[in-house]
Design a binder for these strands. Structure first.
Lengths: 341, 341
DNA sequence: CTCCACGATGTTTACGTCAACATCACGGAG
DNA sequence: CTCCGTGATGTTGACGTAAACATCGTGGAG
């Protein structure tokens, strides 16, 4: 109950405050924006009136006048993926620190049409700029031209776009994972890849292949999943039955969990007869059985940087030129030397 | 390149379109809003001009004039919890369907002060209403009075607030879980509770207790975790060592995963010597080892309803009076009759 | 044939703020 | 003592839209 707001009173405007404090609207505006040239006494009086009337500036009017919404739009397909969620959280937090708010511009279907639509509708959104968290395949500039007047940052490791982008160093992660397994003494490393429409999936697969080739090892045909635990499980049902497979690099932790499940069902012991490395280091991975060796992505760092780059564009300050964020190999109990060793 | 936008041209306004099409601004406005009373010929001409000039209405001006932002604010502590993520996704999708956009109003710390602050700043946000996804403890009306003029829906099962609220039927879920274990023949059921500051945790614990008491069973002292896998693991280290414990109802799937890990480490077989039921049915739960019996929450339904209720308030249409969303027991492989049976 | 109702379209104004410019008081330099 | 610079404060006028009201033309009822 605290403050007594008038009955059904419309919200107080700067003019109301001005009248109440006996000053001009402009002075109210100056106080509201914390500008320098206002006498302390006046400032206090205006502040008191603002509190008493429950005044707060109207964002719409501010935006109309200044052309700035102090809002960043985020375009992503889904919140169901661990990475996207972490990105969003990091973006929201970083944006908050520099006075921006996040607006979700959802795209329901993973189709080019939806993306194009969302981007086309961009200019009628109340945003100053946009962070796009969508696989590059659907963003090649030929099909979707981003409005030239909207600041954009793309979270993606494709270099197809001419817009600023940033992402995890996918190749580094895949290299670390594959190398770790080779270092343990495995003859070669198998792979469960993500869907090929995802640039990240292709990068991880390519880097895995390169490491094997550079060591002169046989490159086994990769399995392909869709990131889901179910697809990892299905690949796992075959892998668990083939004793010649002793090491697998899985393109994400979810599919690795599915693989683990298949191994348990078929009695294939991990890590003594099969080593597994995942990718993402999702929250639960350390509690899988066995705890999963994986590649830790710094989602928060990527999110933070994307905001920094975007705000630099919006406010035309010096851009932050970070474009690749490194990863860490986290060794847990799902990897070990091969059976014979 | 497609459309040829003038060099550094300012955005076209309704006045520009009006001039170009030879009509009044008002007619442009009518066409833009798809109102009825415009002659087809005129409408087409205006539409053509809009396309040619690349016109799109200015949200700020619209909001200023109409007082509506067509935006819903969401206040939540974190995106790291499975439930919150699902809520947000459902809210965003449902909002999109009725022409609203979602803005994130983040609260970094789980403290009363932060919540109060976020709510106090509410009226200066560009939102028409707010969905609050925060445990009731921090929202008891004594401390935090929600601005009376802002439509609010609270996702929470506390009945403390006088504002509209909606939530999963926590008690039903806990009852189903506990009953399921008793039905299998277990003498009693132990419990790993969530943090007591969460209303949901208290509700689940209370319902678990009631079921046991109503069957005249002993009520063992509950363990208490903090929702994290780590806390479930720590409780699990003790549980796995006590053979008299044959059934555990865990307040969320994450802690259940931790318990599973402890059981694996200590060689306690699930479900033959210990049955486990979780709560949430997170995406990964069916791939745990063994796949987890759990309570499926309809997060999407709760999210959808919250939007419906909020939009009803904003647009003063008939409110949707749903306040409790049921749950389903999903039986998987982590539960079985007790060892002796 | 006249009048009026009705639908289509135009004109005016206000929404709340901020930028640009105007004014005003004061005090120090000459 | 006058002049003018300086800093505080006031006045005016957009920003782009939509509501309220005004106008215009047309066709049907009487």
């Amino acid at each position: 109950m605290g403050s007594a707001s008038g009955p059904a009173a419309k919200k107080a405007s700067a003019a109301d405050v001005a009248r109440h404090a006996g000053v001009s609207m402009q002075t109210v505006s100056r106080v509201a924006r914390d500008l320098e040239n206002v006498q302390p006494a006046t400032r206090d009086r205006v502040r008191a009136s603002m509190v008493e009337l429950g005044y707060s500036p109207n964002r719409a009017a501010r935006a109309l006048r200044s052309g700035r919404f102090h809002t960043i739009g985020v375009i992503m397909f889904t919140l169901s993926s661990f990475g996207n969620t972490k990105f969003l959280e990091a973006i929201a937090e970083a944006a908050g620190l520099v006075g921006y708010t996040i607006t979700l511009l959802p795209v329901s279907q993973r189709t080019r049409g939806e993306v194009t639509g969302a981007i086309a509708r961009l200019s009628e959104q109340a945003v100053d700029g946009v962070v796009i968290v969508i696989e590059a395949d659907l963003l090649s500039e030929d099909d979707v031209d981003l409005p030239a007047d909207v600041p954009v940052v793309i979270i993606d490791s494709s270099r197809l776009s001419e817009r600023p982008f940033i992402d995890t160093d996918q190749a580094l992660g895949a290299r670390l994972a594959t190398q770790h397994l080779l270092d343990l003494g495995h003859e070669t490393v198998w792979h469960i890849a993500g869907p090929q429409t995802f640039y990240a999936a292709r990068r991880r697969e390519a880097a895995w292949r390169e490491v094997l080739e550079s060591h002169g090892r046989e490159v086994p045909p990769p399995f392909t999943g869709d990131w889901s635990t179910g697809s990892g499980y299905r690949a796992g049902l075959e892998i668990a039955r083939r004793p010649e497979i002793t090491a697998v690099f899985v393109a994400n932790d979810g599919m690795a969990l599915g693989l683990l499940r298949a191994c348990h069902e078929l009695g294939r012991d991990v890590p003594s007869t099969l080593s597994i490395v995942g990718f993402d280091d999702m929250t639960e991975s350390e509690s899988f059985w066995p705890p999963l060796t994986t590649i830790h992505q710094h989602f928060d760092e990527v999110g933070r940087s994307s905001v920094a780059m975007l705000v630099a564009q919006i406010e035309r300050t010096t851009p932050t030129p970070v474009t690749m964020v490194p990863v860490d190999l986290v060794v847990r109990a799902s990897t070990a030397p091969p059976p014979g060793a």
